[in-house]
Each structure stands twice: as C-alpha cells, then as structure tokens.
C-alpha cells in the first residue's frame, strides 16, 4: 500500500515536472513568436541593424584601400566589428521595446521561470543577428572581392554570435533599467565579450587564410567554452538582474 502511494506520488511529481517543463518551453516559444511577429510588422530593429552594418562595411571599404593579400588578413576583424556594432544596436532596441511601454513588467508577471524570458529573448536576438549576418556576408564578398562562403567560417560566425548574444541579452536587461541605457550597454558589454571576439576573429581569420582545422580548433574550443559559460551564468543571474 505504502509502495503504491509512493509510486503515485512519484508519478504525480513526474507529471508536474513534465508539465512545468512544457510550459517553460511554451513560454520561450511565445516570446520568440511575439518578437518575430512584432518585428515583421514594424521592421524597426532589423532595418536599423542592417543599415548600420552595411554602412560600416561600406566605410571600411573606402577607408582601407587594400590589396588582395592584405584583405584576407583584415576581413575577419572588419566582419566582427560590423556584427558587434550592429548587434549592440539590436540588443539595445530589443530590450527597450520591452521597457518603454512597461511590457517587461507584463513578462515578469507571467507565472513562468524568468529564465524562460531570457532564453526567449536570446533566441529572438539570435534570429535578428543571423538575418543581418546572412545579408552582410554576400555584400561584403562583392565589395571586397573575397569568398566568405566557407563552412568553417559560417560555423565560427554562428558560435561567436551565440556567445555575443547570450551575454549581450543579459547586459541589455541590466542596462535598460538605467537612464543612460544606450551608452551603458556597449560600456558593459565590450569588455566582457572580448574573449568571444578574440576567439571568433582568430578562428575566422584562420579559415579565411586556409589554415587547417587543427590550427583553428583551439579558438573554436574557446568559443564553445565561452558560449556555455556565458549562457549558464546568464541563466543563473537573469532573475536578479530583472528584479527590483
């Protein structure tokens, strides 16, 4: 009898765990859907990121009159500077939309673990970042006459973006609470994200210069480690960041 009742309790706790996990993922999906639907309609965030990114690579194109050989060495740097500046713009705007009409409070009032809000925002920000990168890469290829469509490079861009957005989303949630949010985010973000950027630039540069996977692997490993560490830390502290 005792065993039977303990089995029922165990089963019930499993159901509760499953249903709370399901509602956690449903909340993440709801936030991503909301962000994409609102952005599809306004195109406020994507257009700002895109115009900014294209202007940056255009300015670099005129500022650095380079020969073909030198181009390969600076391409990784120019690309990541473009992604990071455009990304900062997007991260700031993405959280500002939540804060300006009090919507962040609306999200925080939902009966879900607050890390669901963090992961939802991370996924939306990543989608916006990937869209910008997917447009910037061919434009850069044409302007600089460089082939960027290498599987290794694309992998590095994906990994680097994950690390950048993981920590950027956390810090933008912090910065948005202040009056100087537009200035504060890059000041907070750039020093923290340096390890990701160094690894991303080195790995991207390696692939562009045709180095073997073994030579690039240490940088890729560093990227993976930082992605995991940044995501885990952000997951643990997001609750404290958004709470008064």
């Amino acid at each position: 009898m005792k065993r039977h009742s303990s089995s029922i309790t165990h089963h019930a706790s499993r159901i509760t765990r499953h249903s709370s996990l399901a509602s956690f993922f449903r909340a993440i999906a709801a936030i991503v859907w909301k962000d994409l639907a609102a952005e599809l309609r306004s195109r406020e965030l994507l257009s700002a990121m895109l115009v900014f990114a294209l202007l940056v690579i255009l300015i670099f194109n005129f500022a650095l009159e380079l020969d073909v050989k030198t181009r390969a060495t600076v391409t990784a740097g120019v690309l990541w500077v473009t992604f990071v500046f455009a990304g900062t713009l997007g991260l700031n705007r993405s959280m500002a939309i939540e804060k300006d009409r009090g919507c962040l409070d609306g999200l925080l009032l939902a009966p879900v673990d607050r890390s669901a809000i963090y992961f939802g925002k991370v996924i939306s920000n990543l989608v916006f970042m990937f869209i910008v990168e997917a447009i910037v890469l061919p434009v850069y290829s044409v302007l600089y006459n460089t082939n960027l469509f290498k599987l290794g490079l694309i992998g590095v861009i994906l990994l680097g973006s994950v690390g950048y957005v993981a920590v950027g989303t956390l810090l933008s949630a912090m910065a948005v609470q202040t009056r100087t949010r537009d200035v504060l985010l890059p000041i907070l973000l750039f020093p923290v994200v340096i390890p990701v950027l160094v690894a991303a630039v080195k790995a991207s540069s390696g692939f562009l210069q045709g180095l073997g996977l073994a030579e690039v692997m240490p940088w890729i490993n560093q990227l993976i480690v930082y992605d995991i560490v940044f995501t885990a830390v952000a997951f643990m502290v997001f609750d404290y960041v958004v709470e008064e």
């Binding site: 909340a27 859907w33 909301k34 609306g106 999200l107």
Partner: peptide, 27 residues
C-alpha cells in the same frame, strides 16, 4: 491580474495577438 497606468501591451501586435501572447505565457 495586474493593471497599471502603463498598458503593458505591444503596440506592433493586434489586440487579439497581444492576448494570444499573454495567454500562451499563462498556458
């Protein structure tokens, strides 16, 4: 249920979409 002087709604979503979103958040 909380109502403040701020609407806590998304301007770029329709009335129904706002409710769909919050309905999903509350499962």
């Amino acid at each position: 249920g909380v109502v403040s002087h701020m609407p806590l709604l998304y301007g770029d979503l329709t009335a129904a979409e706002n409710l769909v979103f919050f309905g999903r958040m509350y499962d």
